[in-house]
Design a protein around this nucleic acid. Structure first.
Length: 987
RNA sequence: GCCCGGGUGGUGGAAUGGUAGACACGCAGGACUUAAAAUCCUGUGGCCAUCGCGGCUGUGCGGGUUCGAGUCCCGCCCCGGGUACCA
């Protein structure tokens, strides 16, 4: 048989399908292993070469584990709710459910071509009502729960009401809103239903509160952060404001400590854990109240350095702080308003990234809690409303931002430690003894902190506190394509939930996916939806965010068809949790934190029996695209010509009836930019001809300006590009379809047209998507799989480039030729098993096994290449060696392995073959070729038996001709032998 | 700004603190062939060289630890990801 990958793939696929080999059972005598991929969002662009990187990786590992004797769960599904489908629906009017299903089908076809071992009977899709029924159900459980700190887990809200009935909230230790007031049992009973609802809202794990959204009045819609570029809407460039709306939140902060502690039990990379730790942002400090001079209120600040309190020379509060309006004095109202207006136009990131400190005095003063001195209150954008209390006490001697602020606004800087060097910049030291600090003078950091907190608590002006940077998770989206909330409001505004029996609450058909113009979701347009629960009632019109469905999907794979529960205890009890999770590091603090939170909540209720969802993680790097750009000359630009009078310009534009699109070869543009006269002239002549050809008169009178600003850079689809060369013919055919203007191309002097190439994230919008279909067609699935692995380590980002794929293709052919000759005849296997082949085989098994364990799949492929190169040199290879080789390669190139396995006379599938083990006895060496260094520089190589004692080695080495030359016969100061590694002589 | 990564030939990359550049691509030369494809062989970091002896230098930049540093430590520069409504 000849090496024809398309035949081979057909045979293998048929065998797998007929044998139903990827069906996974929930009961087995084998140990279980769960390999999970982050499921994809089914984009309209189809699968691109970046997607399969992680999937091939996990597929190889899943196959390897299966060959090691595990019952492996390796499922796939679709994260199918999301913004792009909705935007596509707005443009085309097609229902997102339809386009999403089409996209899913495309993805599945592509997956099947790559030979993944997914059990498709377990597919889940988050937009499937039978799936989101349970997303809604879990949400309702969160709504009906509160976090009882006393028992360290969540509890039913009914229990809380029972406590309130007897004791009020005085005995309750809950994770709840900071501002909740205390009440007795009697008071509780006297509250109205609405009051009770509002109080319970402060305790629920899913709750409502007012919060800000990005509101774009011009587009009449709420925008995602991703849709805003430089403070304006990406579409249209309209201004964006902050708008207050009532929204759902999940009280993830209740789980902050457990989310933090749980990290220690996980086999994730330290960097991944660090990102979560920093996101959670635990800090131990104190809450301090600064009473306002002219008002009743106090300004509360959280500080991790309460010891620096005598260095406070001003207070800074966020521009959005609730007290700003109240405390600003008449004199400063205008300036404060203006400052707030400027801040509102910036995003949090822009505000934090600002290098120049800015702020505004409010005219108000607070009193220092100990010295009772007046401290001025400023607003500044570097203080964010969402973090802590939205107010900080500024200590310019110890904090650099405060220092810069103080310098700018001429505020005093008080050093507070005897070791502090704060003349030119802030010094955040904790060393030394306190000075200028009243009753803590002379104390050290630890003593001072303790005493201060004690004093604050005595005077009721503060207390010790642990603060988390993490905020509760926003759970409302003003969109159509998401899970509807099983929530409605009655005529009195009371909230009702929809019973489990009536779930799922399915998305209704709507006439238009367009925004309402009020900021509400498109569902608000549907009267049928809004009044679904009766006249005068109102269904919740917002939908759930993307992370709702993706926070628990891995549990559904365990028991996908269960209609009675999201996962049965038996199924979850068998599969436990995910043993290996493969996905991008960009999810480090989003999806991965939300999933952990949901899982802990489910655990609290006994619905799952594991505390953490993902034991081990591998983060694959992004495969980037190599975008191509063309430059288009814009002849309508006012600076195209440099007329002395404006009339020229006007008349030019008038006369100019059919403006062509003029493209310029990037190489020529480069020359023009470098002011190379010949090229500038050539282009000018070209322009004149173009203009004449379209009937432009008096061209000769114009002076063409060809500076680079007149060229607009735009993406060109990489399918029209070969390396740097543009296929002008096919590209202009394409342009004809999308523009009615004629297009002309200014080529380089060598008659080629060059494009510019840049590495970017692979995305449909950047026209740099490489579809795997063509590559698989040209090289086959196994080659594609192995090439993606061969590209480099799984965790580094790398640009896609097919230049090296021929190496893998020829490796597969060489591998095949171990079994068949050039004419496709089976080669006779070697009669004897030679030591030579065993050495090659076992060296390869060892290396591949070790590399598989440490996830270095790129070097596995290298080892295969080395093995095949070495084995090709042998006259004949025994059947047993060839068999082991097939098994070794099977996870990587399953189609080829399956067919060879078949052809060797094995009736079963190679999928269930046993992964070979290596035997150390074939690998032992008696002699090692030592590199000999003299003073750390390599000077010689010597063969020395590995069991030779050090004294003898020393004698041998020192007598070597080369060594004598470089040591100049001196006695060495040191003689280092690292057995089997290196010898270093120090003289 | 903050948090987390990364930076090694022309390119992708390899290297438990132990011979830097494995394995590939590309390129150059050669074999086979009418030719091409395929296949095979040789060479390939840079500089110097009495180009088959050898030498110097070299892993973003500057320091340090060590017998020995791409690898560990300190200080920079640049690039990528995340930054709470892209998924």
């Amino acid at each position: 048989m000849e090496y024809n990958f398309s035949t081979i793939e057909q045979i293998a696929r048929k065998k797998w399908k007929d044998g139903n080999v990827y069906k996974v059972s929930n009961s087995s005598a084998k140990p279980k292993y769960y390999v999970l991929d982050m499921f994809p969002y089914p984009s309209g662009a189809g699968l691109h070469v970046g997607h399969p990187l992680g999937y091939i990786f996990s597929d190889i590992y899943a196959r390897y584990k299966r060959m090691q004797g595990y019952n492996v769960l390796h499922p796939m599904g679709f994260d199918a709710f999301g913004l792009p489908a909705e935007q596509y629906a707005i443009q085309t009017g097609q229902h997102p459910a339809i386009t999403t299903e089409q996209n899913i089908n495309t993805y599945k076809k592509q997956f099947e071509k790559i030979g993944f071992s997914f059990d498709w009977d377990r597919q889940v899709s988050t937009c499937d009502p039978s799936y989101y029924k349970w997303t809604q159900w879990i949400f309702l459980q969160l709504y009906d729960s509160w976090y009882n700190k006393e028992i360290g887990k969540s509890d039913r809200i009914d229990n809380l009401e029972n406590i309130f009935n007897i004791h009020g909230n005085t005995t309750v230790n809950a994770a709840c809103d900071e501002k909740v007031r205390s009440f007795s049992g009697e008071e509780w009973k006297a509250f109205s239903t609405l009051e009770k609802q509002n109080i319970l809202m402060d305790y629920r794990l899913a709750y409502q509160k007012d919060s800000l959204v990005n509101w774009c009045p011009a587009l009449g819609t709420v925008l995602a952060n991703d849709e805003i570029v430089n403070g304006v809407s990406e579409r249209g460039g309209y201004p964006v404001e902050k708008k207050k709306m009532s929204q759902w939140f999940l009280r993830i902060t209740a789980y902050a400590e457990r989310l933090l502690q749980g990290l220690d039990t996980l086999e994730w990379t330290e960097s991944m854990k660090d990102m979560q730790r920093n996101w959670i942002g635990k800090s131990i400090g104190a809450m301090v109240s600064f009473p306002l001079k002219e008002h009743e209120e106090k300004i509360d600040v959280f500080t991790t350095r309460v010891d620096t309190i005598f260095g406070v020379t001003f207070l800074v509060i966020a521009p959005e702080h609730e007290l700003v309006k109240k405390i600003t004095t008449a004199e400063y109202i205008d300036a404060v308003d203006e400052y707030i207006r400027v801040c509102a136009s910036k995003s949090d990131i822009e505000r934090q990234s600002e290098k120049i400190v800015s702020g505004q005095f409010t005219g108000a003063y607070v009193l220092h809690p100990f010295t009772k001195q007046e401290v001025p209150v400023y607003i500044a954008d570097y203080v964010l409303a969402g973090y802590g209390t939205g107010a900080v006490m500024a200590v310019p001697s110890g904090d650099q931002r405060d220092y810069l602020f103080a310098k700018k606004y001429n505020l005093s800087i008080i050093p507070i430690l005897d070791t502090q060097k704060s003349e030119n910049e802030a010094d955040a030291t904790k060393e030394g003894k306190y000075i200028n600090s009243d009753f803590i003078n002379g104390l050290n950091y630890k003593e001072a902190t303790k005493l201060l907190i004690q004093k604050l608590e005595e005077t009721k002006l503060g207390y010790g506190k642990i603060n988390y940077r993490m905020r509760d998770a926003g759970y409302s989206r003003q969109r159509y394509w998401g899970e509807p909330f099983p929530i409605y409001y009655d005529t009195e505004g009371l909230i009702h939930t929809i019973d489990k029996e009536n779930l799922p609450v399915t998305l209704p058909a709507v006439d238009s996916y367009k925004p309402t113009g009020t900021g509400e979701s498109p569902l608000a347009n549907s009267k049928e939806w809004v009044e679904r629960m009766g006249p005068g009632t109102r269904m919740e019109t917002d939908t759930m965010p993307g992370y709702a469905g993706s926070s628990w999907y891995f549990l559904r794979y365990m028991d996908p068809q269960n209609e009675d529960f999201f996962v049965s205890r038996e199924a979850q009890g068998y599969w436990q949790n995910v043993d290996l999770y493969v996905g991008g590091a960009e999810h480090a603090v989003g999806h991965l934190l939300y999933s952990r939170f949901w899982h802990k909540f489910l655990k609290d209720n006994g619905w799952v029996n594991t505390e953490e969802p993902f034991k081990k993680m591998v983060n694959q790097g992004m495969i980037q695209g190599v975008s191509a750009f063309v430059y288009r000359y814009n002849p309508m630009h006012s600076e195209t010509i440099t007329p002395d009078n404006k009339d020229y310009e006007a008349s030019f534009k008038n006369m100019y009836k059919i403006p062509p699109e003029i493209y310029i070869s990037s190489e020529s543009l480069q020359l023009i930019e470098n002011k190379e006269e010949a090229e500038v002239n050539r282009f000018t002549v070209f322009l004149k001809e173009v203009f004449k050809s379209v009937g432009q008169v008096c061209v000769d009178e114009f002076e063409f300006n060809v500076s680079k600003i007149l060229f607009s850079k735009s993406h060109v689809d990489i399918n029209y590009v070969n390396n740097k060369l543009l296929e002008v013919g096919s590209y202009s055919d394409y342009l004809k379809k999308i523009t009615d203007r004629p297009c002309v191309f200014f080529r380089s002097r060598d008659t080629n047209f060059y494009v510019e190439r840049e590495i970017e994230k692979m995305s449909k919008s950047k026209f740099n998507v490489v579809n795997p279909d063509q590559i698989i067609e040209q090289y086959g699935a196994d080659c594609f799989r192995m090439y993606e692995m061969f590209l480099g380590p799984i965790d580094t980002a790398k640009p896609w480039d097919t230049n090296g794929i021929s190496g893998v293709a020829s490796f597969l052919r060489k591998f095949w030729r171990l079994f068949y000759d050039d004419l496709g005849n089976a080669k006779p296997a070697g009669e004897e098993v030679t030591n030579e082949e065993l050495k090659i085989l076992h060296k390869t098994i060892k290396k591949v096994s070790e590399d598989l364990e440490r996830f270095g799949f790129n070097t596995c492929v290298s080892s295969f290449m080395i093995a095949v190169n070495d084995l090709s040199k042998l006259k004949a290879i025994s059947k047993s060696t060839l068999t082991d080789l097939i098994k070794l390669i099977a996870p990587f190139g399953p189609h080829t392995a399956e067919v060879l396995w078949n052809n060797m006379g094995n009736p079963t599938s190679v999928v269930d073959a046993e992964f070979p083990l290596y035997d150390e006895k074939y690998l032992v060496e008696s002699v090692f070729n030592y590199p000999v260094q003299i003073n750390g520089k390599l000077r010689a190589n010597m063969d020395i038996p590995l069991d030779m004692p050090q004294e003898e080695i020393q004698k041998l080495v020192l007598s070597d001709e080369k060594v004598v030359k470089f040591t100049e016969g001196k006695t060495p100061k040191k003689f280092i032998v690292v057995t089997g590694r290196i010898i270093n002589v120090v003289v």
